[in-house]
């Protein structure tokens, strides 16, 4: 039974590559949105604070799948027609950004107030304080929850099977439709996801160990 499955390996590899590249792009969008919303929540300009709060509230309070549908099926009605790939990256990225914003916010509150104060006393500008002192420390605190979120992003790419992105899940469904072997193909698919998520968490464990040398 196993040898004839080998013919599907190139197809699986291609679908896996798609999952990987979508995940990378989603994470980029997610960090940008997350950072903007986290800093927006601390802004001295009230409308920016409201916008950030609304964004986080809306995203965390609605199903990810509905958000994907809104972007892919809903936006064209507003004149914004996106390819399945772009709509998927956008929806998942904006979705994850709300969670990343909360992660960053919890990281920010973990930095002692004295860090801000000392930077202020040295005449360091607010922006430089953030980029050179606060955020680098925040980053190493939030690396573990950030990894979890990246793993969620990777798994969420399977939702894009519903909007015709030929990633791993949709690919295996298509094969199953012709081969009638759901067990083998879904197990194979699960194993591929597992390999990718394991690599991600190993990578983060490595980064964390490297950081540990300086932080205590």
């Amino acid at each position: 039974m196993n040898s004839d499955l080998l013919v599907y390996v190139p197809g699986f590899l291609h679908a896996s590559w798609l999952v990987f590249s979508i995940t990378v792009l989603v994470i980029v969008v997610s960090w940008i949105c997350g950072l903007a919303a986290a800093l927006g929540k601390t802004s001295s300009f009230a409308p920016v604070r409201w916008l950030s709060t609304f964004y986080i509230w809306f995203i965390r309070g609605t199903p990810t799948l509905i958000q994907v549908f809104i972007v892919y099926f809903g936006f064209p009605q507003l004149g914004l027609k996106l390819s399945p790939f772009v709509a998927g990256v956008l929806a998942l990225g904006v979705n994850s950004g709300a969670y990343v914003a909360e992660i960053i916010r919890s990281g920010l509150t973990a930095i002692p107030k004295g860090q801000m104060e000392s930077a202020m006393a040295l005449g360091i500008s607010r922006r430089k304080t953030m980029t050179t002192i606060i955020l680098p420390q925040v980053f190493r605190i939030i690396l573990p929850p950030l990894t979890n979120e990246a793993i969620t992003c990777l798994k969420n790419t399977s939702l894009l099977s519903t909007i015709t992105v030929m990633e791993l899940t949709l690919y295996s469904q298509v094969l199953i439709a012709t081969t009638f072997r759901p067990f083998q193909f879904y197990i194979a698919t699960a194993v591929i996801y597992l390999i990718m998520t394991t690599v991600l968490s190993q990578l983060s464990a490595y980064l964390e160990r490297r950081n540990m040398r300086s932080a205590a």
């Binding site: 002692p112 004295g114 104060e117 006393a121 040295l122 002192i133």
Partner: peptide, 26 residues
């Protein structure tokens, strides 16, 4: 203005009870 503040602060050093060194820097 932020510029005036920064100028003043570069000329007056301040040290606190908690040392507040940057933990991620040598």
């Amino acid at each position: 203005s932020g510029e005036h503040l920064r100028q003043l602060r570069t000329q007056i050093g301040m040290v606190f009870q908690s040392y507040n060194l940057w933990p991620h820097k040598t």
